[in-house]
Amino acid sequence: MAFYVDIRRCIGCRSCEVACERVHGGRGHVQVHFVGDSASVPLFCHHCEEASCATACSFGALFKEGERTAFDVEKCTGCGLCSLACPFGVVWTDKIAHKCDLCDGRPEPTCVATCPADALSTDFDLLARRARSRAARAAAQGGRR
């Protein structure tokens, strides 16, 4: 499981940040970025297939576990190589590494469940369906939108 952002929907409310922080003992793994005054987008771990953070880790604290890039806090020394190896800047080190764990143990990642705008989803097909639906409507209206 990974999750996806429908960037058209993000309203920059930062609910995902606050919720993530709330369920992870005050250390959140999501950061909402604003692009000028025209857009916002939540940035979080992509759970990359070839995870650079895991490659850079000397002690196996970061590793692939199915689709998830998992983290074992017991093995982390806080060296920060993973943070420097993440192409997206979303693995954090603050004496110890921390990153998105897809809310292991919960039915659904908290950011997905809480997103007021319904911008986050664990279902890639949902995003594709929405995009197709918008494209079909645009075509039906003569492409005027």
Binding site: S38, A39, F88, G89
Partner: peptide, 16 residues
């Protein structure tokens, strides 16, 4: 890392 995030945000939202 902060600039990587900024670049990622700009890349994903650029067209929009």
């Amino acid at each position: 890392p902060a600039c990587r995030r900024r670049a990622e945000a700009e890349r994903t939202t650029g067209e929009m």
